[in-house]
Write a protein that binds this DNA or RNA. Structure first.
Lengths: 210, 210, 210, 210
DNA sequence: GATGAATGAGCCTTCATTCAT
DNA sequence: AATGAATGAAGGCTCATTCAT
């Protein structure tokens, strides 16, 4: 119904440890439901039941259903971002091709690391996030990547323009996203990874060349 | 009782001209609702009301809500595909870079041609289609593109492998999709178009090189 | 909704032969639907469709759905009654036990004569008739039986009192009805027939004795 | 999700006293509606309204409309059975004719004890139960009767065969049922009772004789 | 006469949310 | 703080019936 809604503050600051754990339980329950039964099953009563609380308790920590989803989405985004940042932070800075390949591998991995169940969760989150009309999780990640990317010095000879940064990141992430959404068997393929690497290198070279 | 047929079983074949127009009105109403209020507002009652018919009439032509969505999705896919195919059919086959630029321009245009409202519709359709777990509209389009692409002789020296075709199409479409989704001001930029062209050429060259 | 409704006159006297055939088609369609799909499927549209007419035509011959049911029920009752009367008319009037056995056989047969499908129809009719709160088909039949019965002279030595006539007819018909409703395998059994004969003879003897 | 159990799956086990009372209120409301307006009026909304609860509350305790009917049918059957069993348990075992008369009186009484309204309820229940294709309430009662009957030693000299038991119970119950359905003035008559007694004794004697 | 498109009251059911205990 | 019974707007859908063509 409401398509937009800025992040909703928790109804009650979970200052005590117990409260924080309650929130975690609730979010974990939501995650599991998403993973095992899909979005349609994600009802407040269901969540409360699975979390082992009464529906009343759930509403003591979240003002409404959307707040739960928002929190879920936010946490997932943070987690993704952290994961990628951490990985990128360890990329060895040597020859360009090698560095790019490492980065691609990290990204592919970050889209693959989850089990089947977990993937279902990720898909749900992506959809919910999109339905919310807000930034996609990917968009945030893209920012991080460009940032790290530049600092890595891969784009060497010169910085990427806005357009170039946009195209490069979206091209790569969009490809990975499509592969996940279509549940493509290519995803874990060496050839797939190779193609992406070439996509990037080809772009960088032609850019430089120009 | 159920006379189900493949993708969209109309409950009753609109035999009279009036009936056929009614179906169109219903679909148009659904389209508008999607465009103006989003997926959550797409209720059967809402559609019927907006179409200016009673709910009963709606159910004379569609067995259930999903059938309406299916029809909408199907029509949109056909329309997109036709639009792109037609445009691609007229690409001049000369020097590679020029051809690619023409193709890119067509694609950008196909993502841009709709007004704001219409775009919101397209997004909704895309999401609904994805939620349905079926092929994305893009996937079909991607197929058409690769097909035409090859026949165009742009990939010249050799055909693209599965991975390569996948990566190339998704990279381009994903980039455009992201630009639309984020409502990026880059979308109508010369630099943006240029970057995509380079993305493609870079990929093709590095592929050929290998 | 309406639980009661006195027999509804046809909206239009089917004076022409064609019209009478139309009515027959409609009733036959209703009969078939009842037999093959049950009461829930007996919708006016369904009937019209199966009869090969438009819904509008159906309403040209029946003022409403209930009128169709009423007619169906009435016809079935007449048919049952005629069938039994005809059979009873031919009972040989000799020794009492033999006569009773003949009568029982006729009654059992009248409950059995239909095929499975046809039985399903009979059950539906019975239920609909009962739901209508009116006389059961059986009740009418009971009247005929007592009538014929007395004229047969089986109750010989004296006439049956109201109570006796009631109990005797309802006992026999109730037993048969139960056997049909429960779809009992006893129904076509020799022992079953025999038990009913004894029920009647025992009653008649003890009555006379008193 | 579905935690179905045999006959009547309550959606939620009423853990609090209030909840248990709510369930009773709902069933009582359904009973009254059946008694006063018939089956067609037995809608979930109607029930909830009459019970003084919101429709949501109804669905907290019953998964769907049918579950309410099932519960109603089940309860009624249990009640009937218990009532008859209890009464039969106290039959004095002396001379056969006297015992039979006592039993008949009990049965007549069990069909008479309800007021007019209540009877209408019983009829509805019977019809619904039959429509459900399951055992009729009477069938269960019949079982109890035969059971007690035999233990009473009324059938003395030998046990009744299947056919005999069936015919005897259905004849008696069918007669009573018809009397109730037709709202016969005979029902409370001494002559009526007498006739039934004779029906039974006559049957037993002729059986024994054979 | 016949047709069938259109109607709309009303059914069953869900689920986010509140509040007395 | 926690509980869970209760709420009720709203959604999907059916089907008897009407009426313009």
């Amino acid at each position: 119904m409401a398509e937009h809604q800025s992040p909703v503050p928790l109804r009650k600051k979970p200052s005590q440890a117990r409260a924080r754990r309650t929130v975690d339980f609730i979010l974990e329950a939501a995650t599991q439901i998403l993973a095992s039964h899909g979005e349609a099953a994600l009802t407040t009563n269901h969540i409360a039941e699975r979390a082992g609380f009464s529906i009343g308790t759930l509403y003591q920590y979240f003002p409404n259903r959307d707040a739960i989803l928002d929190t879920l989405i936010e946490r997932e985004r943070e987690s993704s971002e952290k994961h990628i940042r951490d990985a990128l932070a360890q990329v060895s800075r040597g020859e360009v091709a090698g560095t790019v390949r490492e980065i691609v591998r990290i990204l592919v991995n970050s889209f693959t690391r989850h089990g089947r169940m977990r993937n279902r969760f990720a898909l749900s989150i992506t959809r919910l996030s999109a339905a919310r009309g807000g930034q996609t999780r990917l968009d945030h990640v893209a920012g991080s990547i460009v940032e790290v990317w530049c600092s890595t010095g891969v784009g060497t000879s010169r910085d990427l323009s806005d357009s170039e940064a946009f195209v490069l990141t979206r091209a790569v992430l969009g490809t990975l996203r499509a592969a996940v959404l279509e549940d493509s068997r290519l995803l874990k393929t060496k050839a797939f990874e190779e193609a992406i690497v070439r996509l990037i290198l080809g772009f960088l070279r032609s850019s430089t060349a120009v």
